[in-house]
Computed example of a mutant assay.
Amino acid sequence: MNLLDRLDGESGREYAYRILKNNIMSLELKPGENISETILAQQLNISRTPIREVLMKLKEEHLIEVKPQIGTYVSLIDKNLIEEAFFMRYYLEIEVMKLACKDFPKDKLSELEKCLISQKYISGKTECEIDFHKLDVQFHNIIFSGVKRSEVWKGILRISTHYDRLRLIAETKYSNESTIKQHEKFIETIKNKDIKSVEALVTKHLKEPKKGWDEIFNKDFEYKSYFK
């Protein structure tokens, strides 16, 4: 498990939550992996009470599974939760992009362009998949915040824990070139206020990657055990 320094003013519970969730979402803690309250308390140098509270919170987020008399595990990736998250993300992203085409702040447009430059810089570099994934999330967060829909994006992220773990697996297997080209198109579409192109663009951006999911679900021996 990757451990990070505790932030100033961060409680033991907040620290444990941040570390555990980061490790689950980055697949450092793998789906199906056993979790010990005692070992976590020792690793994080905090008592077991906040650990137990954090595990219950992560259980509510479908990231932890507690099996009575057996143990606590990182949840396997659930295809049904992936589909629910995809449904929410797809339709809301279309509507948000339409809003962005009507009115989008110049400073947010600059943020998008800087984020894209960072994506291009690390694309294809060894062991940068997680960093690219974070930049991808940041890119779309900027769009939502630019039309004053930041809380909507947070809602999408809350329901997307299984979807995003699958996306990270896909990003380790496939090139990011198409993602970068599509992000360029997102910026161009916003600049040109091209509302008519929005639905086709979002459809390609979100549905095209799904073509490789069946292979990951059913044929990739390395990841097959990750799924419910």
Rank of each mutant, 00 (worst) to 15 (best):
S160L: 00
K21H: 04
D164F: 08
R89V: 02
E53V: 06
F139M: 12
L27R: 00
E60P: 03
G155S: 07
R89Y: 06
Y121R: 14
L81I: 05
K228L: 03
S145M: 02
K181L: 15
L29Y: 13
Y17D: 04
S36Y: 04
I70M: 12
E28Y: 11
D136F: 13
K154I: 08
T126D: 11
A200L: 11
L58V: 07
K185G: 01
S175P: 10
R89Q: 05
K134G: 02
E188M: 03
G12R: 03
L44E: 08
A170R: 14
Y91E: 00
A41M: 06
G124H: 05
V152S: 06
L99K: 14
S118T: 11
P209T: 09
M88P: 00
N176C: 13
F132A: 10
E14V: 05
I24K: 03
G9T: 12
F227T: 03
G32W: 08
E111Y: 11
G124S: 06
Q69E: 10
C128L: 12
F217W: 15
E61H: 13
T49D: 13
K154W: 07
Y90I: 00
N176A: 15
Q42V: 09
K181F: 13
K59H: 13
A85W: 00
L206W: 05
I70F: 13
I19D: 01
L7P: 01
K114C: 11
Y90H: 00
F104G: 09
Q182K: 15
I216H: 04
L55W: 09
P209C: 11
E184L: 02
F217E: 08
L157D: 08
D8F: 11
F186K: 02
H205S: 13
I159E: 04
V152C: 07
K79Q: 15
S145T: 15
L116S: 07
E127S: 14
R13N: 10
L40C: 05
Y226A: 05
S175C: 12
L157R: 14
V202I: 15
K196A: 12
N141F: 15
I190N: 04
H162R: 00
L63N: 10
R48V: 06
K125S: 11
S150C: 00
K196W: 06
E93S: 06
S47K: 05
L44Y: 08
N176Q: 14
E33Y: 08
S160E: 00
K193I: 03
Q69D: 09
L166G: 10
